[in-house]
Amino acid sequence: MDFSVVVEYFPRLLSGAWVSLQLVFLSVVLGGAFALPIALARISPVAWIRAIPFTYIFFFRGTPLLVQIFLVYYGASQFDAVRESIFWPILKEPFWCAIIAFTLNTSAYTAEIFRGAIQAIPEGEVEACKVVGMSKAQMYRRVLLPRAFGIVLPAYGNEIILMLKGSALASTITILDLTGMARTIIARTYTPIEIFLAAGGIYLAISIVVIALFRQIELRQNRYLGTLSIKVPDKG
């Protein structure tokens, strides 16, 4: 094994990692923004409002991310209407196709995480809001969302790490992310073990940063609980 290739190509790998980070960051931010309304619709008392996010989540959780990427990248360009629309400058770029597929995918998972967190808030805390005469909007703004944010953190950190690893699929539609860059280098140097080990190491390093970051936020956010775990109040 010859690790000098790793040293030589390390800057290229880092530029690939930078693309991966952009993919993950953009799709997690956009996906998170979409996830909240989806989660709120998901727990609506009205049946047909619930049905829409249910179908959406069912589709994006039930099909492989790779299929979703291909559908956006190869599928959209099949339609003249799409090619002639104002969205074509975006949809013809593999980078943005990946962002769209990742965003839709992660928003479905994140919506389920949000929904679970909102429903995990003890009913008594909601009743305490009702008896002081809060409106629904006040209830969400003052109690439900801040509480859900604390509950959501461990699962949400997990989703971001899954997204980081899922982002490797962007390499299948010509994007030179960390994996794509590694494959390009290997095609030139024939050193798969060295370069993939290096790429894996970089993924690990990013994961460690994400984990540490979330642990800090969790400690800060849930300091009122005394521990990292969610304590279930005594119902008596």
Binding site: E125, K130, P233
Partner: peptide, 20 residues
């Protein structure tokens, strides 16, 4: 209803303080 609730206090068996 919310106006009435604002004028009727309610104390729960399990306190139900907002923990955050």
């Amino acid at each position: 209803l919310t106006q009435m609730r604002q004028q009727i206090g309610f104390v729960f068996q399990s306190f139900n303080l907002w923990p955050h």
